[in-house]
């Protein structure tokens, strides 16, 4: 992960620390529900014990995609990454994307698929079978149960959001700890939604007297 220091121009305009620039998967390290850093190497070891086919499970905004990106980076370093596919283009396109991903993935490598739950049960089972028969690994994120064993279950807590705050750029005192706790509650524990709420609060606070 690259360290980025943003130096704003002298007369403006404070960078919004909650923008996706700083929060999107790959920009933050994977953290568990207590806010402790997850060791991707340990999870890859566990993935190997599952035959290189497993699922990262958890509700919306619980850090599944962030963890998948971190594990994909580790697989890349070990020259075992077979590709990354992000689903969400509709069932047929998603099915095609997985088929192409598996075709392009060399034997012994791992294909990473985000939002696996967008495939139906039959398509998911067929894809898993193809991966198993052809000796390809499959690491996916999913909300629900499925045929793949669970590698890790993601969940959230106010402490996790607080630890994420420590890793974001300066809030310039415009968003306080109470705002962070309220955002977590309002978003029902969905960290992604909470960060969007905090983005809006930061925008309101930096433009005093307008629309608040």
């Amino acid at each position: 992960m690259t360290t980025i220091a943003v130096i704003p121009s002298t007369h403006s305009i404070t960078t919004n620390p909650f923008s996706t620039r700083f929060t999107t998967p790959g920009r933050l390290p994977p953290l568990d529900h207590r806010g402790e850093e997850v060791d991707p190497a340990k999870l890859l070891h566990r993935l190997d014990r599952h035959g290189s086919r497993a699922a990262i499970r958890g509700p919306h905004g619980s850090g599944k995609s962030t963890l998948l990106v971190a594990l994909a980076d580790q697989l890349r370093v070990r020259d075992r990454l077979g590709g990354i596919v992000r689903l969400g283009g509709g069932f047929r396109r998603d099915l095609l994307a997985v088929a192409r991903g598996l075709a392009a993935c060399d034997r012994g490598r791992v294909l990473c698929v985000d939002s696996w739950e967008r495939l139906d049960m039959v398509a998911a089972a067929v894809a898993c079978t193809v991966a198993w028969i052809s000796g390809r690994g499959l690491l996916v994120t999913s909300h629900g149960i499925g045929v793949l064993p669970t590698l890790v279950s993601c969940s959230t807590s106010p402490r996790l959001l607080a630890r994420i705050m420590e890793r974001l750029p300066d809030r310039f005192g415009l968003v306080g700890e109470i705002d962070v706790e309220q955002a977590f509650d309002e978003a029902n524990g969905n960290i992604r939604e909470a960060l969007f709420l905090l983005y809006d609060r930061f925008e309101r606070a930096r433009r005093p007297g307008v629309g608040s």
Partner: peptide, 9 residues
Amino acid sequence: SRDFVSEHV
């Protein structure tokens, strides 16, 4: 990290 990025707006 092994690199460091500084952005100047």
